[in-house]
């Protein structure tokens, strides 16, 4: 049987059907889009890492003895750890979709991604980005409190002497604090130790260690909600 001239047939079909190559712009956009997605995944990954560092460094590790080993599991920043994992996987996936991204192995891409995320995330943490984002989310996104429920949970045990909330009124040596359940507490600060750069003023979120009964707490210690240093506003 005689072989067909496939090249000739293909060319004839191209001409007959008026087939035109797809615009170069479409391919350029597609290529840029994947690099943009890689960059977005990386930046969010690095910011997430800075939030993890912020959560770990600002955790109340001194309470470990009071709560025991469960303290670690109760206060780990699960949401941010999961987010970091998700954006690492997305970063790897989008990188693989770039024009020559398939040539690199999974372990190499993940390794480079994680090292870069760690370096840039640490820089973000050092310049205060992690705490700034956390503070902004605390103030502007109510859903964030539900996401970080485990941290609130540790500080929602007035019967055990652990309370947190926002100062709504300052009255000399007493303040009024509203907790996450909407209860208002009167806090006596006569012999209080102010830990870190906490400022006793309306709107400030604080953590209190003391002895509480009904709606009154005798505070032994007050510390800022995030970190031991006051955030710039």
């Amino acid at each position: 049987m005689e072989n067909r001239n496939i090249s000739q047939l293909a060319l004839e079909r191209i001409k007959e059907e008026g087939i035109k190559p797809i615009s170069r712009n479409i391919f350029s956009i597609k290529r840029v889009l994947f690099w943009v997605l890689v960059a977005i995944s990386f930046i969010i990954g690095a910011l997430t890492f800075s939030l993890i560092l912020s959560a770990l460094f600002n955790n109340d590790w001194d309470l470990y003895n009071k709560f025991g080993f469960s303290f670690i599991f109760r206060t780990l920043p699960y949401f941010w750890l999961i987010s970091l994992a998700v954006f690492t996987i997305l970063g790897e996936y989008y990188y693989r979709k770039t024009y020559l991204g398939h040539r690199r192995g999974f372990i190499l891409i993940m390794g480079v991604y994680l090292i870069s995320t760690t370096v840039f995330g640490s820089l973000f943490y050092l310049i205060g980005t992690g705490r700034f984002i956390e503070q902004s989310l605390e103030n502007e996104a109510p859903i964030y409190r539900h996401i970080m429920l485990n941290r609130y949970e540790v500080w929602s045990h007035p019967e055990a002497g652990f309370l947190s909330g926002k100062i709504i009124r300052v009255m000399g040596e007493e303040i009024e604090v509203i907790d996450s359940n909407g209860f208002i507490w009167i806090i006596n600060m006569q012999d209080v130790y102010l830990r870190g750069r906490v400022e006793i003023e309306t709107g400030e979120r604080i953590k209190i260690i003391g002895r509480c009964l009904e709606t009154i707490c005798i505070a032994d210690e007050i510390r800022p909600w995030i970190g031991m240093r006051k955030m710039m506003r």
Partner: peptide, 19 residues
């Protein structure tokens, strides 16, 4: 193969000499 050539022509702008 004919389909391969048609697809190749259709996507010709997507070819990058890096490959």
């Amino acid at each position: 193969l004919q389909e391969v050539f048609i697809k190749t022509y259709y996507n010709l702008n997507g070819f990058d000499p890096e490959l």
